[in-house]
Amino acid sequence: MFTQLLQLTANGLLLGAIYALNAMGLTLIFGVMEIINFAHGEFLMLAMYGAFFLNVWMGMGPYVAIVVVVPLFFVLGVAFQRLMIQPLLDSQEIAQIFATVGLSIVLSNGALFFFSADYQMVRTDYSLESLDLFGVYLGYTRIFAFAAVCMVALGLYLFMKRTYMGRAIRATAQDRRAAALMGVNVRRVYMITTGLGLACVGITGSVLSPIFSVFPSVGTQFGLIAFVVVVLGGMGNLAGAFFGGLIIGLVEAYSGFFLDPALKTVVYFVVFILILLVKPSGLFGSTVRENG
């Protein structure tokens, strides 16, 4: 029983780390621009397809694919900000929602048209192998994903704390006008932030590609989890998203075992509603635009 609990906990944390990184991309964009990107899950779907096709066409492993997918997604994020978010920043929320929801529909239907509805997955030699740690089995692909996430989270933390650009991003989130008075080019910060947000999505999609099948509507589920995590961690709070992701991973692992894996979505929604009822600002507070 004890080993089983350990196994569940390990499963939850390894899975949760992936949720964490995905949610960090979403919360970063919200924290700085106060815009909710409803196409977040669909961008993740694109990243998974990216890693998949790099594997099929060029024989690239999912971790090598990161090197290609991440710069591509950074540029995609910059373009997305410039062409879609920036013109909407001063519009009403309803327009912002329609625009990103519309984009999500275009992306998932485009994927259906171009990539078909088939489930596809990156296969590696080590996909089915696990590390045996005193009776607790940890799949290699999940260990690699976990390691990648922790490295990126740490990197992002140091970037936000130590660099001029990182501080400028936090400053812009806290007071955009004051940041402009410090010489910050706010539009440029917005583009870089969105680029970084989508770069997180690019990494998530790559490390997810040997773990989870990709299909055109895969983004719906991951998008939903990202929203739950972001609300749990406090909207705009990077550290909150990280720990929120781990918590949701654990919740999923435990509820799958003690209740029923099929109830997973129900459990997310119950968690979601509970947070909104009990502590709408999230576990770590949304006012903490600390991004650290």
Partner: peptide, 22 residues
């Protein structure tokens, strides 16, 4: 600016460093 407009969640040092952004 009027009303200080500091970055409230940053430390004093970080606020000063933001000043040296240009």
């Amino acid at each position: 600016p009027e009303g200080r407009k500091l970055f409230p969640q940053m430390t004093v040092l970080e606020n000063l460093q933001m000043g040296a952004y240009p």
